[in-house]
Write a protein that binds this DNA or RNA. Structure first.
Lengths: 203, 203
DNA sequence: TAAGATAGTAATTAATTACTAACTTTATGT
DNA sequence: ACATAAAGTTAGTAATTAATTACTATCTTA
């Protein structure tokens, strides 16, 4: 419960609603989060929510936007500090896992949306987010190949899919196990394996 | 619509209900599948469903049982035909992907359950299913290590997690893209990468 | 300080949902 | 044939939920 008590300007309240959803989605399935629950979390009445969003779906679009923006920033910062492309991949991997560890609701949103029919607007937004992410991984892999840091005949597309999949698969398993605090340790053990899959310096 | 028209003995009808859920889950989120929708799919009325299952949750437990049984059979068959452990892993990988391609509702169930609170009975069942699966992968990896087919200092646990994660991550991405028919081609491109992550001498 | 805009409330609505129970129909064994 | 138990129907109920509406309180600013 935040119980902000005071009235907030529309923009600030919208952000509050997004954060309420993120907080609630850390423990519950996104679909199970009712507008009533969102209102309770802020200490407001249910009707107040619809002062700031026309429909429930509009809330979810705003949440996806928030995730996209923050994840994108984290990625950019991680890559910027990198030495070579392979180091960039490692930093990206760690940043991605760290982001999920602090925002467990983010993967929940994704896993939730991939269930729904194709024309769903929220799903489209999530798909676009993931596409952009994979493209950035591909670029790093291409540079790594150009600098002869990985197997010269590496299947870049597959390697990018595996990169994203490694994180996603790990998250699936830790979410199912219920112990999200083991995410980062497990990720550290996975990285050497992924790195070796790229080939390169080894015979 | 199956429209079986005739009356069915309880046991057969229960199986019909499970198959109806599997069929409906291929396109919709499991949570969105109502008892009414199940009944419609069989050409019966909603009340008929509750002749065979006391609660909605009981239906989902039966569905998980079905998946567990069929996946387990497919795995066992795949491993049985294998030559060496690494060949077993490859066959297991292919069998797993093939199972998902023919039963896309299976991963949907998993992704749906991992969202819910820990005490959920269906989630517990799904978790047990995945644990057994990962253990079988671990055994194959251990044998591969004993036969010196992979890196002698391989982190088995991590490699098993990566194995399962590779499939799961791939499924997440194809489900999100909406083109499930690209699953198997993409999987074939991923296998060489996973194999290389295990290290060892390449033939 | 008065006027208008903005944020939130309280009550209600229409639709959907899992579940129940009293009933009718069908299949089957003797 | 026919009794009867099982399978399916009909017609509900109670609870939940997103959305709406008429109203009130608070802030801004001219």
């Amino acid at each position: 419960m935040t119980l902000s008590k005071t009235r907030l300007p529309a923009e600030a309240r919208q952000l509050e609603i997004v954060r309420a959803v993120l907080a609630l989605a850390a423990e519950n399935s996104p679909d199970a989060i009712t507008t009533q629950a969102i209102a309770n979390h802020m200490g407001l009445t249910q009707g107040a929510v619809f002062r700031h969003f026309p429909t429930r779906e509009a809330i979810w679009l705003a949440v996806v936007d928030w995730v996209e923006q923050n994840l994108s920033d984290a990625i950019t910062a991680a890559i910027a500090e990198a030495g070579d492309p392979v180091d960039g991949l490692r930093r990206l991997f760690e940043a991605h896992v760290a982001f999920i560890a602090t925002h467990p609701s983010a993967p929940r949103l994704i896993f939730n949306e991939l269930q729904k029919p194709a024309d769903n607007p929220v799903k489209q937004r999530v798909r676009a987010l993931l596409d952009r992410y994979r493209r950035r991984v591909s670029e790093l892999l291409a540079r790594a190949k150009a600098e002869a840091l990985v197997e010269p005949e590496l299947d870049e597309t597959a390697a990018a899919t595996l990169f994203v999949g490694t994180v996603q698969g790990l998250v699936v398993q830790t979410l199912l196990a219920g112990d999200l605090h083991t995410l980062q340790p497990a990720a550290r053990r996975l990285w050497p394996l992924y790195l070796r899959s790229l080939g390169g310096c080894q015979p």
